[in-house]
Design a protein around this nucleic acid. Structure first.
Lengths: 241, 241
DNA sequence: AAAAATATATATGTACTACATATTAGTAAT
DNA sequence: ATTACTAATATGTAGTACATATATATTTTT
């Protein structure tokens, strides 16, 4: 069920855990300064190398920062910060990539409540302005970029920074093999303009339905990939291993 | 806009990046074996300590595994694996926690399409069985656990492992200060049984609306915390019209 | 006396060396 | 052929030494 297990065999992993425990135990807050490396080494009874590695890992994850002379300080981690490295690694398997694609669709539809609640009249105007620029676009690249800008703006309306960050990452992930078919605009049931009109009403249910119709092509494309050729992909994966 | 920057000052961070580059450059795939630490040190022109730290970070992030004697092998990272550590650190600021709470609501509503598409008749029966056990529950703790079980099952129906993992983590995050008011069941507009009845129809739009109504109390509680009562009022207005 | 420049102390960053440990693989014994 | 043992090997841990940056103290300059 829950496959997120961590087996802490090495001293480093134990140290990492113990440092985190130590933090909560000592009631350290944000910007709190941790003991210096040599002290931590003494406290946990391991060498400085182990402490350094553990701290480095925590730094990689984004829960702390270290500065020369100043020492180690706790920071408030950006929840999706690490995902950048993971996605950039290019090691995500096909299943996970599919999962993330679905997640994006879910969020785009699911965020309706928050978009409607926080959308100002200026937001509407700004969205219209983007659509205007879209209509003037000549190249397909330009057109795609403006499409992204439109949706990114919707995310921004929610004022949910984590959501925007996540979307930013997913956007990068799906930038390459964008399954957008060439005639996607023709097949689109609701245009950006249509979305704006619905958004004007600030009715979440209506906006959800509208967004679902707008994304219809993406659902179709996704379905093609998952539905028919999923087995083939699996087999190709097995060839690698 | 995109606040997910990484400044690679230290050699370790550079090495980490270079190792990842080296991986893609050399066309390493899953289960590929990396050069041993001393070799990597020589290739990148840094000491073994630096390489070890870099590898340790990559291991912490979940893109590789190392075993004694065997060496370093690439694995397919679980996208939300690292989040476990971040969440467990207890260092997430209030804004991020609010963001994540909202994200959960978005997903719960946004996943309707996939729940409806993949829900089997046995799934319906299993959900009914959970509801049965809910009705027999005596303690509130038991009741809450079954509530969680019900929703977890809905996530599971999507067969989206990443989604389920993410939900699992969020569940842990919000387990403590669950803003669930005592009389939430009374205020709930649609019960679990109601959800199942709608799910039977396999109509995403209907299920979305039903889920939104079911989660109404959570939206209300969330709104209380955030302050502005914009979300509910807006929605209640819309319900009338 | 206030501001600027310099010096110093300090904690992290990097490197090298040595050895421990586990595990694969090869060898010997049954 | 199977089992038990041995040796080789790559990672894991530890200690030491020094580099580097920077906050703080000190001195110099105005």
């Amino acid at each position: 069920m829950h496959t997120l297990e961590t087996n802490d065999n090495s001293l480093v992993e134990v140290a990492q855990k113990k440092i985190l425990e130590y933090i909560t135990q000592q009631g350290y807050k944000l910007d709190s300064q941790l003991p210096k490396e040599t002290e931590l080494a003494e406290i946990l009874g391991v060498s400085r190398v182990v402490i350094r590695e553990a701290l480095s890992r925590l730094r990689a994850i984004g829960v702390l920062e270290t500065k020369r002379k100043k020492g180690t300080v706790l920071i408030s981690p950006k929840i999706f910060g690490v995902l950048k490295v993971i996605i950039a690694s290019g090691l995500l398997d096909n299943d996970t990539q599919r999962d993330l694609y679905e997640l994006r669709l879910m969020l785009e539809i699911g965020m309706a409540d928050f978009v409607c609640a926080k959308c100002t009249d200026t937001d509407i105007l700004n969205l219209l302005e983007i659509v205007n620029r879209e209509e003037l676009a000549t190249t397909t690249e330009e057109s795609i970029n403006l499409d992204i800008e439109f949706h990114s703006y919707l995310y921004a309306i929610t004022k949910n920074v984590s959501l925007s960050d996540f979307h930013f990452l997913l956007r990068r992930l799906f930038a390459l093999y964008s399954p957008r078919s060439k005639d996607y605009k023709v097949k689109q049931i609701i245009s950006h303009n249509g979305l704006i009109e619905v958004l004007r009403l600030r009715n979440p249910d209506a906006f959800r339905t509208a967004m679902r119709l707008h994304l219809n092509t993406q659902f179709v494309d996704h379905d093609k990939i998952v539905g028919t050729s999923s087995i083939i992909q699996k087999n190709e994966n097995n060839l690698i291993s």
